[in-house]
């Protein structure tokens, strides 16, 4: 389990997080959503021990992440948004890096590489950005680490690759693993992430599992407003609305609509879900 306790962080003089509290439990694919500049990358870096918080503590399975103990790093794979791969063949990279991860699954790696159609015998520096990303994603998922942190994993991927990515992430998920996906492209991770965490202005403004959201909120399109909506946005031919789900039926989640609703008025949305739910 990853625990952040009262984490405060500032960039130069600008305060980004103030006493932030967050828990990530195994067996979940968390989606970390937020606008540009909300602090998503900083939060991921603090979790990965790459940045140190000013106050508070971040631990993963009782390891203080700032110590960068090899035992912790063996259980962490951090996929940055931008990265460099050395000019060696994919197979060489695999032979050099996989021994660092005791639970590396070679069979799974080959499967992911096949799914993404990445040539292993080509030098990594000759691959396109998207291919490099798919290679590193395959490597990261095959490390079988207990926590995998991905910063904007769908950036640079074509549409079929995004579908493949969702498929292989779901396949690589185990009960003892935490996958955290940070993105501002909410559509890319729809039907994959659960729970949903939203970050705005350095604060966690939303943190609910999909079941709670879809049982408490109703999202859809209407041609006329009735005044009971929690959130509305004008679209061609009518409105997209978020309302309280009074039918007690689970409704399909429109993540983009939910994101807009939460970022415009998080209190209303959180209050609507809180009724009869456990946060």
């Amino acid at each position: 389990m990853l625990i952040m306790e009262n984490v405060s962080f500032r960039y130069n003089k600008k305060e980004l997080f103030k006493e932030l509290v967050l828990e990530l439990k195994p067996g979940n694919i968390y989606g970390l959503l937020g606008k540009n500049g909300a602090g998503k990358t900083t939060l991921l870096k603090i979790m990965g021990g790459l940045l140190f918080s000013e106050t508070g503590k971040c631990t993963f399975n009782d390891f203080d992440v700032t110590k960068r103990d090899p035992q912790f790093l063996e259980d962490l794979f951090f996929l940055p948004e931008e990265f460099f791969l050395p000019p060696v063949k994919g197979s060489v990279f695999l032979n050099l890096r996989s021994p660092f991860y005791p639970n590396f699954d070679h069979k799974a790696f080959n499967y992911y590489i096949d799914e993404f159609d990445i040539p292993l015998e080509k030098s990594l520096n000759t691959l396109s950005f998207g291919q490099k990303k798919k290679f590193l994603l395959s490597f990261g998922l095959a490390t079988s680490t207990k926590i995998m942190i991905m910063d904007e994993p769908t950036n640079g991927l074509d549409i079929p690759s995004k579908t493949t990515l969702r498929k292989i992430i779901a396949k690589s998920m185990t009960e003892d693993r935490i996958i955290l996906i940070s993105t501002h492209q909410v559509k890319d991770v729809e039907n994959l992430i659960d729970p949903v965490i939203m970050l705005d202005d350095g604060k966690v403004i939303f943190n609910w599992d999909i079941n709670s959201i879809s049982s408490k909120l109703k999202m859809g399109s209407v041609s006329k407003l009735n005044g009971n909506e929690l959130f509305t946005q004008e679209v061609m031919g009518g409105y997209e609305v978020v309302t309280v789900n009074e039918d007690k039926e689970d409704y399909a989640l429109n993540l983009e609509l939910l994101f807009n609703a939460v970022t415009s008025n998080s209190k209303n949305i959180n209050d609507a879900i809180k009724v009869g739910s456990y946060e």
Binding site: G48, G49, L50, D69, P70, L73, L76, F84, F100, Y101
Partner: peptide, 13 residues
């Protein structure tokens, strides 16, 4: 900025 994250997260002390 392109290399540091992977360098620090490589499992070695």
């Amino acid at each position: 900025k392109f290399k540091s994250s992977l360098w620090f997260s490589l499992p070695a002390s």
